[in-house]
Design a protein around this nucleic acid. Structure first.
Lengths: 198, 198
DNA sequence: GTCTATATTAAGATAGAC
DNA sequence: GTCTATCTTAATATAGAC
């Protein structure tokens, strides 16, 4: 039987990337050896170096592409001009995207310490851009008096912290369905930012 | 000049512990070698093994003592019976305690992957107890109709996620004073749980 | 593109002298 | 209690054959 083009066998570059992402997320960058990675891919260690300059480049590629794709995906996603809708869209987008890419997310949050100084700066810039995307929504909503927020920066960080924490415990077969989780978070975040009469 | 008892020179056991906590927090458990640790303490590597069975025992001791002390400190702290006061006390306590012990906190959140299975279970149990301490406050407040909370477990995790995230960015010389940070978070959390008329 | 073999360095841990 | 010396294993990375 002839090989179906590009279907049966993934190329090694892809496999290296997938294995690295999974292993780094599970055991941590520093704890994973190039031999372990090679064994997981199913090649010998020398082969890995055909696809990456060194171990650091592998980590940086994973984090950098993750952050870039995250920013691109959000820029494609958002459209509404109503502050509340924008915020809801962001919450849904963030949870969907992060839960679908748990390994990359985990790495992006946990492995900052293991980046070279130059690589660290680049990733931090991207992360900052993502935080700013949310803060812009809060700022616009505050100007329009749709939101009542004392400090948009703090609120931005609080919301992202609270949302990202979901990645550490959510399981598809857990007590709550994803839609329930999303609606709970939507309610909590809206309460945080909407004008109140207490 | 005679040595002042217990003042000038800390004993090696203490130094090993302090160095390990700082180095593990900065570089990650897996990335720190016993030689690096010894050098930081100012002894040779053989000496380290007079104070720990192995590297894993060092990590477990740091995490286990941190979690135990955290739980003890909270049990000493809380007293009020009014739900809103209890929650405010928890927020203040959590931020004060976590910001004062950033290294241990960082390790306790980042290095779970590097614990042996048995050690992991033990730490998870302690962490769960701490989460439960907050959830008990929310449950009691909900029963007393002081709080309006759809799902106390989700709200517990959201609050802890949002508070702990502060550790990653707060700096004593930053834009906001600690008291300002605390009051912003108090406001956000109270909005999340208080009955609303929107 | 992958393998084997190897260079080099460093890791965790222990034994025994002082 | 600390040091030096050492065992053993494993790490990153490269060279060169197939």
């Amino acid at each position: 039987m002839p090989r179906t083009i590009g279907s049966y066998s993934q190329n090694t570059r892809t496999l290296v990337r997938q294995s690295a992402e999974r292993l780094f997320a599970r055991h941590g960058y520093a704890a994973v050896s190039m031999r372990q990675l090679a064994s997981d891919v199913g090649v010998q260690v020398g082969t890995i170096y055909n696809y990456t300059k060194d171990k650091q480049a592998l980590l940086f590629a994973i984090m950098s592409e993750h952050m870039t794709e995250l920013l691109q995906a959000w820029s494609r996603e958002w459209q509404s001009t109503d502050p509340i809708d924008q915020l809801s869209q962001f919450l849904n987008f963030h949870l969907d995207y992060h839960l679908a890419r748990r390994d990359a997310v985990f790495i992006a949050y946990m492995e900052l310490r293991n980046l070279d100084a130059a690589n660290f700066e680049e990733i931090e810039t991207l992360r900052r851009q993502y935080e700013d995307a949310l803060e812009q929504i809060l700022i616009a909503g505050k100007s329009a008096k749709a939101f009542d927020i004392a400090d948009t920066r703090i609120t931005t960080l609080a919301i992202i912290g609270m949302l990202t924490e979901v990645v550490t415990w959510y399981r598809p077969d857990g007590r709550l369905k994803l839609d329930e989780v999303k609606s709970h978070y939507r309610e909590m975040v809206l309460r945080m930012v909407m004008p109140q009469t207490r």
